[in-house]
Design a binder for these strands. Structure first.
Length: 793
RNA sequence: GCCGGUGUGGCGGAAUGGCAGACGCGACGGACUCAAAAUCCGUUGUUGGCAACAACGUGUGGGUUCAAGUCCCACCACCGGUACCA
């Protein structure tokens, strides 16, 4: 037997054997109980794996391995979300085709992941940039188009000045680009859009049916931003009505002016009638020039211009109301126009004070409506309803629910993405490709730069660009924009079920058996991006009968970030990046895995500590050393039975509730006990190996085999069971308190009565006795097998 | 501003309302060694005491309770999300 713990050879050996035996391949045996564990598949960046990746991959690996040991048919797959900007930018800079860059990065990632001993089913590996894969991404787009959920629209969109590319709302962080942090401006462009807003209500409602962390649910609900109120028509002297959205229809008598956003369409329409249109136009142009960031930074000081020669009428009392244009009103929310009630709205008040406008109070201190004719005396809630009823009856408005969620801007002016399978025909307009023409593959090109005018590089692929219309056969051009980064990941979990299927995105049987995903791990940063998008697509696929349920993920969990040694976020610029390769080379994969799980509460952020790893290595070396102290059953190691059963119970439960750190602590405590006892039986070491196997699978497998502890592989053997009776102690330590203060302990048999314990305490614990001696006993609290508290005066 | 989260030794972190600090790191002392590393044994919340022991101790201030890190009220600090959303 090899005496030294030679992790390098052990780890390589077992990785090869597992691979050869296909030990972790999910089986297409649809009568077994199934378990689908999913981690967000990585973007194969040029930097390689980050120590943050293994934290979540190992966590789900532990769960997947435990489920296999429990007899489930487990699917734990991995793939590559490989379309995207960093690869394309690298390709441009180094004049290499992004396809080659992607292949290289995937190869590196894959070998890094393999070196960690993760039990992925590599036979189901997918790559979103593979035409066999993106054929189905395009197919879903065609279905969306067919059902009116994909449409082309000219609108103000977010434009990243550095990526030269449009961004979805979800990709704008603090007015800056999510990827490159450059400034984002509003640009009017014709773009493909997906009607996610149609699903807004269902995306909120169905959160009740899934097991997600509360903060994830709240963040999605806030992002979708439902608010209920009324849409009210204000007539104007020019004939056209101004529609406004308000959540406070009860304050309609307090409206003293109307505000239109600078981009509001009526301004253009009224250009001839507005006496000061030149001034308005100047204001509009100024607003357009501001970046999102500037517009919100300037939020303290409100600006605006009054429209001369136009006024509106209050629908409830016919009063004349002035109209302003001001950029504190956003074109993208509600109707792009508001009724201003300065008495009861902070922003309206600021504006009214600056421009000296009328302020009319319509709610008194007690919350009752005043100065409002038929609404007077009502509470806010009742007045809202009454106002809406009146508006509906008089055809001046209606009840209205509004959402902050915008439709998803779905086209990007870049090369490295899925081509949108649409052609523009001179006669027929936008025409979808036939399904049989999919996949529409990317043309091979040498230059991938976006033009300064903001057109996709694909406009230069002339042969690819010019085509014929699938409908009329006439001249047509292909859509040159590609799909965003998030397209391929919006449905990838379905492709794992049946990755080689060329008839469907996956077979019905496979989807029925495997879906929904039982546990899905991913970062909080995807809550309002990938997680929301994929729920939307899944609901759509459900509606057209493709998938079996309307929610893809039964349970969602989120890992905490692994921070740098200094407690800051790991980044190149901070110089605190830890490379997993170095750790594995120095300490081994098992130690790395163990440390990543031991570092702290799984869902909380935790700083990396190179010193901390040593403790995990020591533990594994001590585990390795157990082989030296195997013995026949004797008095001492028989005494280990209770702690072994307790440890099984603890580890079993802790894995279920994601407390990997305390599960490992329990294993460490067990090893301390074993060394105190001085020996361990073969059978006991077998149980220990199985318990350790999900966390540190290579060493567990090696010890299992070395010592002939059982049949087959430790990785897929039976998960140990505990005996509840054996978890119980016969002797317990009873805590003693006087007036709630701890005064000592005594050893007791289990199940003693209060009086017995009290007597024993007085006899055996001097401290306790001293504190009650000569005092009057007011009350005794006895918690069986736990504590005795005596209240004295 | 609003919505989440967090706050415990020198450090990472444990604690169904019931012995605060499990487990690990570090530190200190000892063994082994020519020596160092590794390993093993012991000590390690603070203060006082030779000691038994005592007092204090979970961000701050109050409260409930026989008993509070844990429950309630008010606040402070840090982290994350979001924001002229009408």
């Amino acid at each position: 037997m090899n005496r030294k713990y030679d992790f390098k050879n052990i780890e390589k050996k077992w990785q090869d054997i597992w691979d050869k035996e296909n030990l972790f391949c999910a089986k297409n045996e649809y009568d077994k109980p199934k378990y689908y564990a999913l981690v967000e598949f990585p973007y194969p960046s040029g930097q390689g794996l980050h120590v943050g990746h293994p934290r979540s991959y190992t966590a789900l690996d532990i769960i997947a391995r435990k489920r296999r040991m429990q007899g489930y048919n487990v699917l734990y797959p991995m793939g590559w979300d490989a379309f995207g900007l960093p690869t394309e930018n690298y390709a441009i800079k180094n004049k290499i085709h992004p396809k080659i860059v992607t292949e290289k990065n995937i190869a590196r990632f894959k070998s890094q992941l393999k070196s960690l001993g993760l039990s992925f089913d590599w036979s189901r590996e997918i790559d979103t940039t593979n035409p066999d894969y993106y054929k189905w991404t395009q197919w879903i787009f065609l279905k969306l188009f067919e059902n009116g959920l994909a449409y082309k629209s000219r609108a103000f969109v977010n434009w990243c000045t550095s990526c030269k590319c449009v961004l979805a709302n979800e990709e704008v962080i603090d007015g800056k680009c999510e990827r490159c942090s450059s400034e984002v401006i509003k640009k009017e462009k014709s773009q493909w859009m997906l009607k996610i807003t149609k699903y807004a209500q269902r995306l909120i409602d169905d959160l009740e049916t899934v097991d997600y962390p509360e903060k994830v649910k709240t963040q999605q609900i806030n992002w979708i931003g439902r608010s209920s109120g009324a849409e009210i028509d204000f007539e104007t002297n020019l004939g056209e009505n101004i529609k406004v959205f308000t959540t406070r229809p009860d304050t309609v008598f307090g409206v003293t002016y109307i505000v239109l956003s600078p981009e509001h369409e009526l301004l253009e329409k009224w250009s001839k009638n507005i006496e000061n249109f030149e001034e308005i136009k100047k204001y509009q142009e100024n607003a357009k020039k501001k970046t999102d960031l500037e517009r919100s930074e300037l939020s303290k000081e409100k600006t605006g211009v009054k429209l001369q020669g136009v006024y509106a009428l209050n629908p409830v009392n016919g009063e004349k109301i002035p109209i302003f244009v001001a950029d504190y009103v956003l074109v993208s929310y509600g109707t792009g126009a508001i009724m201003a009630v300065p008495a009861h709205d902070k922003r309206d008040k600021e504006f009214a004070e600056k421009y000296n406008l009328n302020v009319l109070k319509v709610i008194d201190e007690g919350g009752k409506v005043i100065n409002s004719e038929f609404l007077n005396g009502l509470s806010t809630e009742k007045a809202k309803k009454a106002a809406i009823n009146w508006l509906v009856k008089n055809e001046k408005g209606k009840e209205k629910i509004n959402y902050k969620l915008r439709d998803w801007v779905f086209s990007r002016q870049r090369y490295w993405g899925e081509p949108i399978p649409i052609v523009k025909c001179e006669k027929c307009g936008y025409v979808p490709l036939k399904e049989s023409d999919l996949p529409l593959t990317l043309p091979n090109m040498e230059k991938f730069e976006t033009s300064n005018s903001g057109e996709s590089p694909l406009v230069n692929a002339k042969e690819w660009l010019n085509t014929t219309c699938p409908k009329c056969g006439g001249k047509a051009q292909r859509e040159t924009d590609t799909m965003p980064q998030w397209a391929g990941s919006s449905w990838y979990f379905l492709r794992y079920l049946d990755p080689k299927n060329d008839k469907n995105l996956a077979s019905n049987e496979a989807m029925k058996y495997w879906m929904p995903v039982d546990i899905y791990n991913g970062g909080m940063e995807h809550t309002t991006l990938h997680l929301l998008y994929s729920r939307f697509w899944y609901k759509f696929l459900y509606d057209i009968g493709v998938v079996p349920q309307s929610e893809p993920y039964k349970k969602r969990i989120s890992h905490g970030l692994v921070l740098g040694e200094n407690g800051e976020k790991m980044s190149k610029s901070r110089g605190n990046v830890v490379n997993p390769d170095d750790i594995i080379a120095e300490y081994g994969a098992d130690t790395m895995r163990l440390y990543e799980m031991f570092i702290g509460d799984y869902e909380q952020p935790a700083p990396w500590s190179t010193k901390g790893i040593k403790g995990c290595k020591r533990f594994l070396e001590r585990f390795w050393g157990l082989q030296e102290i195997i013995s026949e059953p004797n008095e001492k190691n028989k005494g280990l039975e209770s702690i072994i059963h307790k440890t099984i119970k603890k580890v079993d439960k802790d894995i279920e509730i994601l407390k990997f750190n305390t599960a490992i602590a329990a294993l460490m405590a067990l090893i301390n006990e074993v060394y105190n006892a001085g020996s361990i039986t073969r059978e006991q070491l077998g149980v220990f190996s199985l318990l350790l196997s999900p966390f540190a699978p290579h060493i567990a497998e090696e010890v299992w085999q070395n010592c002939y502890l059982g049949e087959g592989f430790a990785s897929v053997s039976q998960w140990p069971k505990y005996d509840e009776e054996k978890c119980k102690d016969s002797q317990i330590k009873m805590a003693l308190q006087v007036n709630g203060k701890f005064r000592g302990t005594i050893n007791c048999e289990v199940g003693l009565s209060e009086d017995e314990v009290f007597e024993k305490a007085k006899n055996e614990c001097h401290t306790f006795n001293n504190f009650i001696a000569g005092k009057e006993i007011v009350k005794v609290i006895y918690v069986p097998n736990r504590l005795l508290n005596v209240v004295v005066k």
